[in-house]
Simulated assay, not measured.
Amino acid sequence: MVKAEETFYLVRGDFLPEAMRKTLEVKAQLERGKASSVFEAVKEVGLSRSAFYKYRDAVFPFQAIQQTRIITLFFHLEDRSGTLSKLLDTVAQAGGNILTIHQTIPVNGKANVTLSLDVERLNIELDGLINKLKKQEFIERVDILSSGA
């Protein structure tokens, strides 16, 4: 069972209590070097030091907790039995976590597949995975559409 203090929620900023929003402002000022100390930062945003220390380890900006490296790949595949399965297996064997899959209906013996992958835990270099995919005889083309890596 997960303890309440280990559960995370994504909450829109304007629903947070003022002290939590100000805690985020203090953390941002310290990160950017706009304040040289907690005392200076809390004074600037109008927050007590005790409130800052109460919330500092409990509230984070969304970007700070987004630790995954996500990449979106586009494939042009031959329409043969098992090709999608082989593609997904290659990605899984490399340690990629498949987040989304979109496959078009095959036309003229070809299908397009778009995969979004979490590549944080790859057991090979990303370039190595892409090269391995390009070498598959049923894959005609691999393009990187986006990369948060």
Rank of each mutant, 00 (worst) to 15 (best):
G82L: 00
I139Q: 04
K22C: 10
G95A: 05
F39S: 10
L30A: 09
A28E: 09
V107P: 02
R141Y: 11
T104K: 05
Y9N: 02
D143V: 14
L30F: 11
V142I: 11
L99V: 15
G46V: 13
M20T: 04
F60V: 11
A51H: 14
T72M: 08
A28S: 09
A94M: 08
S85G: 07
F74S: 13
A149Q: 12
R121K: 14
K54T: 07
T7W: 02
F74I: 04
D127R: 07
T83G: 02
R141S: 14
Q29L: 15
F39A: 09
R141C: 03
G109E: 04
S147F: 07
E31T: 03
K134F: 03
A92H: 04
S116G: 07
L117M: 00
L24N: 13
K22S: 10
V59W: 13
R21M: 15
D89V: 07
L133N: 06
K27H: 03
K110C: 04
R21E: 12
D127E: 10
L84F: 01
Q66V: 09
I70W: 03
A64T: 14
Q103V: 08
S50H: 13
S81K: 05
D14K: 12
E31Q: 08
G33P: 11
E6N: 15
G13M: 13
S81G: 05
S48P: 05
L117P: 00
E125A: 15
F75H: 00
Q93E: 11
L117I: 01
D143H: 15
E18R: 13
E31I: 00
I98F: 07
D127V: 06
V26T: 01
Q93N: 11
G95H: 03
